[in-house]
Design a protein around this nucleic acid. Structure first.
Length: 956
RNA sequence: GCCCGGGUGGCGGAAUGGCAGACGCUGAGGACUUAAAAUCCUCCGGGGAUUUUUCCUCAUGUGGGUUCGACUCCCACCCCGGGCACCA
């Protein structure tokens, strides 16, 4: 007799699991041993490499990957997101891995060949920064952290196949990043371009757009504003897959949380519209006084004719609402638009415009302001011609137009766009209405066929003075036939004041006008995406070197496959400032050209670490392959991932890049599928004091300290019980005490009965142990104890099997681990309530009930469950036992209590055998005094009867 | 502004059309103990009636609706959290 000592129990079973290689996958393909034969992960300074120590454990079962041992089990791939080994493991990690581990263990008990691997997202800035600070090597820092993190993971008994461990900073891994890069380079998916980039002065490196958060701050340093710089960068053409990335989201519906799909869709940002070219009117024409020409779609501008030598600039705009083009009262260019300089050259206001432009360019860098900034802009002094009606519209520059999106130029339609309306109000541009909500109005408006007079309908924005560029200003007789809108009307309606198109519904107008624009040669239907290409260049040391060489003679030359991997130099000079550390290392940089053998220079950028995590889950299928990233046959067996589990923080970046990578691999012929992850689960955060745990807030609870205090099983149980897994979890010391008490209560319960139960049972049946396990696999039919069961036995067995039914459901379907635990607690309470068990419950039944409790707890508190299983007299580990089958016969109720309602209020209860017919229930119910009282003197209108559930008598 | 979540006792939460508050925490009381801890047992949403057993009534953010019956479904609104945001 002793107490529950989690530390002892946990160490004992972890050792045994390892000896018996319990968590290793079975061979997915016939033939060779899969993982063992290959080399262990190299260059781990202290930690013994995985795969070594279990070579010949005494009493080990046949190696799962033994030759010819192809498994017949169905596969199941469950994966938690690759951790960055930042040192200590906190409760957020712990919760993530606990959920995954329960799933993995349940699936194993249900007869699946489970792949449940773990590895390290080992490249990245913190290692480099720590190395600079502590004057160590990033590899040393990283590997120390990995060792620490791994020790903690093992302490929690997570059921990983450690043979498959990978670390992305090892050349054996990152050489395949380089290999993929070269394949992408061959296909034009990887390319280099000069671009304005986000520069974090703290990281001293370039950030991806996605890494810029909160409107202009570094995602790592939320207090540091990102600056803009122009640098040559490597990009991966994610935009080549925009349409597929969007389209294939449909495949994920049902398997992924709706909000993640929504966020991805939002991020990709598809817009269907039209590009339209507006010709720029010559300056002479502008000087003429700007009387617009009204020859319909003949675009020849008189000014342009008058000066045939003048170049005809065209401004390309993009719009999703071409139906509003008759309401365009300006063209607005981004301040950084390349045409701006040429347009203002030679205009009277050139000097002022240039000054203004500089101001706007500076302020637009401060992205923080953009969201809240007031609309700003200026008139260039030039006009463009609306190709639909030949009308001249002023060309403006506006701070709200982004060069990066669309064409960097828009047509401003104030009457039908919020943003344009705001701009027009501020600068006094006209607000011509060209879409009406009502049909009758449109008929009226479309009567004037001479489009050239469209401007007569234009009205000044309320309270605004005519702007210099407002054509309405040149027409003093303009009068408001159409009321000045107070708000822009942005919905679809019916076109008005739109020439030939007046009277059309917006949908039809868009279609017709787009087609006409194409036919006339001044427009093109176009779909644009918000998604940008993925900038992967980083000017840092601790990442994958980009395998490219620059030769004075041959230009850019890819590193040949045979020369991979391009290794990181062993001893970099890390300062954290200035140029990339690789660029200043002559041994790394100076290289012979692979083509001509002449002197050349190596690329010194390294890759974004999101590259590492975009395909790592394929490597787990074949982690030691040294001639390919993985064997396609193995990936075909394991993929797609059946269940991926991680934080919502990766809803966009990591998952989008992973989806992109998969499609590239598909096009390379490596995989046949288009989506790598069939099901995604995003667990909630662990909070303390209502906020996420973080070092800066100082509210972190370490996994290690919790294991010290209560043991791993209590920690696991607590995180599962305290909240449903998708919701945030508020850390509570009191609640964890509750979990601890419960496990002690279970332990005491089993301890009290095991000795007697097993001893007596041996007399009855000394082959019980083996047979029990066998029976579990065969399904229902608890071994009938000789003689008729007692009432107490029936009740206990019923409760046990009912619990099993609910717990099975909670594990399989909804992942309501908290209510599964609540059910088991109820069962344990029922067993306590039935004490003394000796009184009326035979040992075999005692044992059956206790075994069910143990088996149901096994996925959640595996160490304790193993210990209890052993206490209950089993020689073979619990890991050999299948999930128990529900015995519906035993679970069935003898009688049910049916609430009886009168007019929907419970007025009594009757106890009936299950399946009792309505007549009988009504008969019994009306005999009930409480019910009868409410029926007296009333007429029964209706009787609602739900078998075994409820009776409702409606009276009046 | 747009798009997602969410709102139930002192607290975490359960119930997805059928007895609201399972299970746990906290709190109160009792048993055991010289005592404490641990353990075991009982009670614990508000209001009211009743000596007690018990009964009535209100209650799942607010207001409507559908239904014999609504935490659950529908409409409108309020509040909280998250994501996106001059996206043309």
């Amino acid at each position: 007799m002793g107490d529950y000592k989690p530390q002892e129990i946990e160490a004992k079973w972890q050792k045994r699991w390892e000896e018996h290689r319990v968590f290793e996958t079975e061979a997915e393909l016939g033939g060779t041993a899969e993982v063992e034969k290959s080399k262990p992960a190299p260059s781990k300074p202290e930690d013994a490499a995985p795969g070594e120590k279990k070579a010949q454990a005494p009493g080990a079962k046949t190696a799962p990957g033994a030759p010819g041992g192809k498994t017949k089990k169905p596969k199941y791939y469950v994966l938690e997101m690759l951790p960055y080994p930042s040192g200590t493991m906190h409760m957020g990690h712990m919760r993530n891995y606990t959920i995954g581990d329960v799933v993995a263990r349940v699936k194993r008990m249900r007869g699946f060949n489970v792949l449940h691997p773990m590895g390290w997202d080992a490249f990245g800035l913190p290692a480099e920064n720590a190395a600079i600070k502590n004057k160590t090597h990033p590899r040393t820092w990283t590997n120390n952290n990995i060792a620490e993190f791994q020790r903690t993971l093992r302490r929690f008994g997570f059921s990983y196949d450690w043979r498959r461990e990978i670390s992305t900073c090892e050349p054996e891994y990152y050489r395949w990043n380089q290999w993929f890069f070269l394949r992408m380079l061959e296909r034009g998916i990887a390319y280099k371009k000069k671009s304005r980039v986000n520069w974090c002065p703290k990281c001293c490196t370039v950030l991806a757009n996605e890494q810029v958060v909160n409107g202009g701050y570094c995602w790592r340093h939320e207090d540091t504003r990102v600056e803009a710089r122009e640098i040559e960068q490597w990009f991966l053409k994610t935009t080549a897959y925009s349409e597929q990335l969007l389209e294939d989201l449909k495949q994920l519906e049902g398997g992924w949380p709706d909000r993640v799909i929504a966020m991805q869709r939002n991020w990709i940002g598809k817009s269907i519209g039209v590009k339209v070219w507006f010709e720029v009117a010559s300056q002479e024409s502008t000087a003429e006084g700007g009387q617009p020409k009204s020859e319909g779609k003949n675009l020849e501008d008189p000014g342009a004719k008058a000066a045939p030598g003048a170049s005809k600039e065209k401004i390309e705009i993009f719009t999703t609402r071409i139906d509003t083009i008759y309401g365009a009262s300006a063209i607005v260019l981004a301040p950084t638009h390349p045409l701006v300089g040429r347009l203002i050259a030679g205009t009277p206001g050139q000097a002022a415009a240039e000054k203004k432009l500089v101001e706007m360019k500076v302020s637009s860098v401060k992205t923080e302001d953009i969201a809240t900034a007031e609309k700003d802009g200026f008139f260039t002094g030039r006009y463009a011609v609306n190709p639909f009606n030949g009308e001249k519209v002023p060309i403006w520059v506006g701070n709200f137009v982004l060069l990066e999106y669309g064409t960097g130029a828009i047509m401003a339609v104030p009457a039908h766009d919020e943003r344009d309306f705001e701009f027009a109000v501020k600068f006094g541009l006209p607000v011509p209405v060209v879409v009406s909500k009502e049909k009758s109005f449109s008929a009226e408006g479309s009567e004037k066929e001479h489009r050239g007079h469209g401007e007569e309908k234009k009205t000044q924005a309320p309270g605004a003075k005519p702007a210099p560029g407002a054509p309405g200003g040149g027409n003093p007789s303009a009068q408001a036939e159409v009321p000045v809108p107070q708000r822009p009307f942005t919905e679809y309606g019916v076109s008005v004041n739109s020439g030939l198109y007046s009277g059309l519904k917006s949908e039809d107008a868009i279609e017709r006008m787009a087609s006409d624009a194409e036919a006339e040669g001044f427009g093109k239907k176009e779909t644009i995406f918000r998604l940008r290409d993925w900038g992967i260049s980083r000017q840092r040391y601790w990442g994958t070197p980009i395998p490219v060489i620059y030769c004075a003679k041959d230009g850019m030359v890819p590193v040949p496959d045979k020369d991979l991997p391009v290794l990181l130099p062993a001893n970099p000079l890390l300062t954290g400032e200035g140029e990339s550390p690789l660029a200043t290392d002559p041994e790394f940089v100076n290289v012979k050209c692979p083509n001509c053998g002449g002197p050349a220079r190596r690329e010194s950028d390294t890759m974004d670490t999101f590259v590492d995590s975009s395909w790592y889950f394929y490597r787990y299928c074949d982690p030691r392959n040294d001639h390919a990233p993985f064997d396609p046959a193995k990936a075909a067996y394991w993929f797609p991932i059946d269940q991926y589990i991680g934080g919502i923080t990766h809803a966009i970046l990591h998952l989008l890049y992973s989806r992109f990578w998969c499609k590239v691999m598909r096009d390379l012929g490596l995989v046949a599928h288009s989506e790598p992850i069939a099901r995604l689960f995003t667990q909630g955060m662990v909070q303390k004091g209502g906020v996420a745990m973080s070092k800066s807030r100082g509210n972190v609870v370490g996994a290690e300290e919790m294991a010290d205090k209560y043991g791993a099983d209590t920690g696991r149980l607590y995180t599962l019980f305290a909240a449903p897994p998708e919701k945030d979890l508020e850390w509570s010391e009191e609640s964890i005490e509750g979990a601890w008490r419960f496990l002690n209560r279970v332990y005491r319960m089993v301890e009290k009965h095991w000795e007697k139960a097993t001893a007596e049972e041996k007399r009855e049946d000394n082959a019980e142990s083996a047979e029990f396990a066998e029976r579990k696999l065969q399904g229902p039919g608890a071994k009938a104890a000789p003689g008729a069961p007692t009432q107490k036995e029936r009740e206990l067995l019923r409760k046990a099997h009912q619990t099993l039914r609910r717990v099975t459901q909670d594990f399989e379907g909804r992942w309501h681990f908290n209510s599964a635990i609540a059910q088991i607690m109820e069962l344990v309470n029922a067993i306590y309530a039935a004490e003394p068990l000796e009184d009326g419950v035979r040992p075999a039944v005692q044992k059956e009930v206790l075994e069910l409790v143990t088996l149901m707890l096994a996925p959640m508190t595996p160490h304790l469950a193993e210990e209890l299983w052993e206490m209950l007299g089993h020689k073979d580990g619990l890991w050999t036992v299948a999930w128990p089958a529900i015995n519906e016969e035993l679970a069935k109720e003898d009688e049910v209590e049916i609430p009886v309602q009168v007019n929907g209020k419970v007025r009594g209860r009757v106890t009936m055998p299950p399946g009792a017919a309505q007549d009988e229930v009504v008969k019994r119910a009306t005999a009930d005094a409480g019910v009868a009282g409410h029926l007296a003197g009333k007429t029964v209108r209706k009787v609602i009867f739900v078998q075994d559930k409820l009776l409702n008598i409606v009276v009046s």
